[in-house]
């Protein structure tokens, strides 16, 4: 096994930027230039990450943000703290079949057989690898709702009970959802589930209640290795922007054109 050298990756010039990201940035810049010249200026001098959330009027203005998450697969140690934190922060049932976020372990043997597991969503960590023969590659992949820019779940909701906020989070209206589960079927990532007591669709909210207070999502807060990076997709000087400049970025199931806003670095081709 060769060591992964993060220092080297960090020193390399920023050539890794994604084409799609460029385009999105360009389009949004045009839009902003047309509509909101003043807020853009304010946005540029704003302190990065979630430290300066208050808009001029004092309240939180979703139109000034667009959130995304970066995940560095090579930094995830599979401790499962994110899963546990998510469950407690968002009141997710503590059973083994409902998760807003979970961690998968991929073990690719010398025989090229791909073995994936996620016992209890990775919440209690992972048992030792039960292998016959050698391991070619092995790694952990945290998963969550991708908060897609063109989200199939929002498209299919018959009543408008799931929606995209101005700051890019996909949320569910508990009091309006009829519980038809079409959104669960439409999600390619298995990120949605039906709440066993509320009988409505449930999912990751990017911890929306924390974002408006200027806090990062609970999973990002507790991640001990910085494998999860949270922040603004559109602005230039933010941890997420840096993450996307210094890494080759991939998204999950790009062929479905859902335009995820969860960006993976060092993602293996076997991950689905």
């Amino acid at each position: 096994m060769t060591p992964r050298d993060h220092d080297l990756a960090d020193e390399s010039p920023a050539v890794a930027e994604n084409e799609a990201v460029n385009r999105r940035e360009f389009l949004s810049e045009c839009l902003k230039a047309c509509q909101l010249a003043a807020p853009v200026l304010l946005g540029v001098i704003r302190v990065p990450l979630l430290e300066a959330q208050e808009s001029e009027s004092g309240g939180y203005d979703p139109a000034e943000h667009l959130y995304g998450m970066g995940i560095d697969v090579s930094k995830c140690i599979g401790c499962g703290q994110c899963v546990a934190a998510c469950k407690s922060e968002n009141d997710v049932p503590l059973d083994s079949r409902h998760f807003n976020t979970w961690v998968e372990r991929y073990v690719i043997g010398d025989n090229h057989v791909v073995d994936v597991d996620s016992p209890n969503g990775g919440m209690d960590g992972f048992p030792p690898v039960a292998t016959e023969g050698g391991i070619r590659r092995a790694f952990f992949v945290p998963k969550l709702c991708n908060h897609c820019a063109s989200a199939p779940c929002v498209q299919v909701c018959p009543v408008g009970a799931t929606f995209t906020t101005d700051d890019g989070a996909i949320l569910v209206d508990d009091e309006y959802c009829i519980g038809c589960r079409y959104c669960i079927q439409a999600c390619p990532y298995g990120a949605r589930w039906l709440h066993p007591e509320k009988h409505v669709a449930a999912k990751c909210t990017f911890c929306y209640h924390r974002l408006v207070q200027g806090l990062v999502p609970a999973c990002v807060e507790v991640c001990p290795t910085g494998a999860r990076v949270f922040g603004e997709v559109e602005r230039r000087s933010t941890p997420l922007a840096r993450f996307m400049r210094f890494n080759d970025i991939q998204v999950l199931k790009p062929h479905l054109n859902t335009k995820p806003k969860v960006y993976y670095a060092n993602l293996d081709g076997e991950v689905r």
Partner: peptide
């Protein structure tokens, strides 16, 4: 059968009131 399967059958009228025009199911 659709009604019986819904998590909230009593909210089913919403599909007539606020149908999401992009949703295939809203057209039901």
């Amino acid at each position: 059968p659709l009604l019986a399967h819904l998590g909230h059958p009593f909210r089913s009228y919403e599909i007539f009131l606020t149908p999401n025009r992009q949703s295939a199911m809203a057209m039901f």
